Every structure is written in C-alpha cells, then in structure tokens.
Computed example of a mutant assay.
Amino acid sequence: MLENRSCWCRPLPLPPFSPLVAALPETVPFVGPEALERRSGITIRARLGANESGFGPSPRVIAALSEAGADAWRYPDPENHDLRYALGAHLGIPAHAVMPGEGIDGLLSLAVRLFIAPGDVVVTSLGAYPTFNYHVTGFGGVLQFVPYAGHHEDLDQLAAEVRRSKARMVYLANPDNPMGSHWPAPAIAAFIASVPEGCIILLDEAYGETAPDGTLPAIDLDQPNLIRFRTFSKAYGLAGMRLGYAFGHPTLIGGFNRVRNHFGITRPGQAAAIAALGDRPYLESAIAAIGRSRESIAAIARANGLEALPSATNFVTIDCGGDGDFAARVLAELAQRAVFIRKPMAPGLDRHIRVSAAPDAELELFADALPQALRAAYEPG
C-alpha cells in the first residue's frame, strides 16, 4: 500500500504572470453597494451611487427578456446582426459603422487593446472615469493627466497635452462623470479638430440622452480618428445587462472584430437592446423622470446649505463646502444610514459628493439621512 506523502512535498512553483501584469496591483475600480453591505452588515435602502436608473427599463424590454429566456440554451448571434441594424437605424448610419459590446467599459478595453502598445501615451482628465485608466495601464499605456478647469474637463489643455506628449489616444466624456457638466457641440467639434489625426479620440457619450439639446455633435463617419460610445445603462435602465455601442469610421469600427469576444452579448441582451430602442415614448418618460429627480436632489442640497452643480447627466454633484476629507466623512455617514452614494477622488474635485437620480422613495431616504450625516461629519468622533 502506497504511503500518502503529499504532506512532505514542497508546493509546486506557480507560473509567473507576464512582466506587465506582474507589476499591476489587484484592484477593482469601484466599491459597489454589495461590497459595502458585506463589510458593514447594513442593507442599502437608497442605491444612489452608481448612476443606474431606478426607474427601470421599458415594459417592452421586460417582455422581450421573458420571451428570450426560453431560448437561453442557444448561443447568441456572434455578429449581433439585428442589433447592429437597429442601432444603425437609430443613429441614421450604416450598420457596419456600429459595434455593440459589453457596456462602454468593455468597448473601452477593446479600443485600448486595438491602438495602445506598451509605452504609448494616453491623455485623460485627472478625476475622469477611472475604469478607462484601468484598461490603459492593463495594456501598458502611459497615462498623462490634465486637471479640470473648474467643474469642466479642460478641452484646450487636453488638446495641448496631446500635442506636447505626442499621445496616441485621448479620452473625453461629454457630458462628464463625475461632475455632471457638459460642453456644447461646437466646443466638442473644435476640440476634435484640434487633435492631430494620429491620435485616437475616444468620446464617451454615456449620458447623451439626458443632456440638453445641442450637446452631441452631428455624426461624421469620415472623421478618421474618432470613436464615440453610448450605452443602455443610464436612461434606458439596463445597467445590469452590460450593453453599449461604439460608432465611427467603418474601418475603425471594423477593427473591433479583430479582438472582441464574439459571444460577448447574450441572446437576452440583444433582444433587450432592440426592444429598448423600439420604445421611444418610454425613453422620453424616463428622461423626464430623471429631470424631476435632479431638481429634487438640488432642492435637498439647498435645504442643507449645500451647492448643487448644474447637471446634464442622471446624477447631481453636490459641493459639501469643505475639503475632501469632510466629503468622505459625509459619504461614510450616509452609508451608515443605508444610503449609498459616491464621490470624486481627484484633488480639487474631492470636496463634492455625487447623487444618482432615483424614484421619490429613495430620495426621501436621502433627504432624511443627509442632515444627520452632515452633523456627524462636522463632529467626527
């Protein structure tokens, strides 16, 4: 009978990661409400931190998901044919100029993979969307940051930094997250024209549906270095489905087929997106509800002596009137009261908190908790 000698053996050496990956930390760009609940044992009652839509998706989407569920045993169409044609019709452009993907996050990762080699310079704003930075470092890019100009991303300085650093890529969100500000279409068009053609422009329009008229530039598929991104996560109420799309010059968009996960969008996801596009009245009602919610959040801020910034998004950024440490205490105190929000982290922006639009019941919880959180934050300990 053989002896069990497993306890005598030395552990086998683990295979090494690539040098690039070995130098990266294990990280998740966002702390989710689920993680807060696990850590604190407090059940979140007002989910106001992730810019989801508590107003939910169209009833047509719910029906489409129910119907598609019976066919979940089938692989999805790897070409996303029907969805691409629906998106093309929605935008008024050919289907081959559109690429659906697993939310804007997944598409940003693919765009960085397509164009950024280790050592290439990528320009973005200091405090802008952190998941983009995560993808750049993951593929070996070198980030160069441009500070905000007040509450806006600084278009002139972004373009100047691209020219100075000979950047391969620049990222801009309009409307902006985390400040909720926006630039009108002529300013964005001037920015695009000022960026050298050798630099890829990633224009994130996740909040385009909730922005004022005249925010989004006209679509120009002949622009050789521009990729625009939009999502179903915000106004359409489908954040949990992970659905977004990119569009631009057909040659750039065709590049995604070189690297994408061809089964990345599920069969129910494709059906949900097509149904969402087909219910314009519901989208308009959701946008109106978001607008009313923004007004309510601003009123709550004013009632507590705080300044709410103008918003073109589905959230409102609030100046807490102190420094970043004070705003962090407000955020923590709200979490203790079962209200989940987030805040900007970059210097100069970190004195703010950010509150997502939501139905009245959740905003009432926020209105009750905010004055308590402010008092506790003023008197820590």
Rank of each mutant, 00 (worst) to 15 (best):
P25H: 03
A64N: 05
P29R: 05
A70M: 06
Y75C: 01
V28L: 12
E37M: 11
I93D: 06
L12G: 04
A68T: 07
L48M: 10
F17S: 10
L83R: 08
L12K: 12
P29D: 05
L114M: 14
W73V: 09
G49L: 07
P16H: 08
P94I: 10
V112H: 05
I62V: 15
R45P: 00
R39C: 09
F30Y: 15
S109F: 11
P78H: 04
V61Q: 02
S109D: 15
M99K: 04
R10C: 03
E102V: 11
L91C: 04
S58M: 01
E67Y: 01
G69M: 06
D71C: 06
G69Q: 12
R47Y: 13
A117E: 14
V21T: 09
A23P: 00
E67M: 01
A50F: 14
H96L: 08
V31A: 11
G92V: 12
A72I: 09
P13S: 12
A64I: 02
V21S: 05
A64M: 05
L87G: 05
P94V: 08
D77L: 09
D77A: 00
S58T: 02
I42M: 10
S18P: 01
G56F: 03
P118E: 13
I62W: 04
A72F: 05
P76C: 09
V121D: 13
V98C: 04
V122G: 11
E37K: 00
P94H: 09
G49S: 06
A22N: 00
M99L: 08
P29S: 04
F30I: 07
L108Q: 12
V122R: 04
L114H: 08
S66P: 02
S40K: 03
G119M: 06
F17V: 01
P100V: 05
E67S: 13
A111H: 02
C7T: 13
P76K: 06
I93C: 06
S109M: 11
P13E: 08
V28F: 11
P33H: 08
T43C: 10
V21P: 02
R47P: 02
R60Y: 04
P25T: 01
E26M: 04
I44E: 04
D105H: 11
H90R: 15
W8I: 02
L48S: 07
V61S: 02
P15Q: 10
N80H: 13
L36Y: 10
R74F: 03
A95G: 14
L108N: 09
S66G: 15
W73H: 15
D82P: 00
P19R: 05
E26N: 02
N51W: 02
P100K: 06
A35Q: 14
V21Q: 11
C9L: 15
I116K: 06
